Amino acid sequence: MSTVLEIEQAVEHLPEEEFQSFAQWFDEARAQRVDAAFEKAVLAGKFDAMAAQALRDIDAGRTTPLDEFLRRA
């Protein structure tokens, strides 16, 4: 595998059409990795405490309905 520097240099020298194609591929690949990491975190319960706190805040009336919040903006 090439080093990051070699990859950066190769990308810098791509013709515009190839650069756009690479950029689209890279954006999709990055999004897939982010989605996979997020799903793994959700399944591991990493957001459970945050969700529980949000539900407690709702039950305690410490939240603002979205439509009311948007009217204020």
Rank of each mutant, 00 (worst) to 15 (best):
M1F: 11
M1K: 07
S2W: 04
S2I: 00
V4W: 13
L5Q: 14
E6Q: 10
E6S: 06
I7K: 14
E8Q: 14
Q9M: 15
Q9T: 14
A10R: 10
V11C: 08
V11H: 06
E12R: 15
E12P: 01
H13K: 15
L14D: 05
P15V: 02
E16N: 05
E17I: 01
E18P: 00
Q20M: 06
Q20T: 01
S21G: 02
S21T: 11
F22K: 03
Q24W: 03
Q24F: 03
W25D: 06
W25P: 01
F26H: 11
F26T: 08
F26E: 09
D27A: 10
A31K: 09
A31C: 09
Q32W: 09
R33S: 07
A36R: 13
A37Q: 13
A37S: 14
A37L: 12
F38C: 04
E39N: 08
E39I: 01
A41L: 10
V42I: 05
V42M: 07
L43G: 01
A44K: 07
A44I: 00
G45Y: 01
G45V: 02
F47M: 10
F47N: 12
D48R: 01
A49T: 13
M50W: 03
A51D: 09
A52E: 06
A52V: 00
A52S: 03
L55T: 05
L55N: 10
R56H: 09
R56C: 07
R56M: 09
R56I: 04
D57C: 07
D59N: 06
D59L: 07
D59G: 02
A60R: 02
A60H: 04
G61R: 00
G61E: 02
G61T: 01
R62L: 14
T64G: 01
P65N: 11
L66E: 14
L66Q: 13
E68K: 12
E68L: 12
E68W: 09
F69C: 03
F69M: 03
R71N: 08
R71A: 03
R72W: 07
R72Y: 04
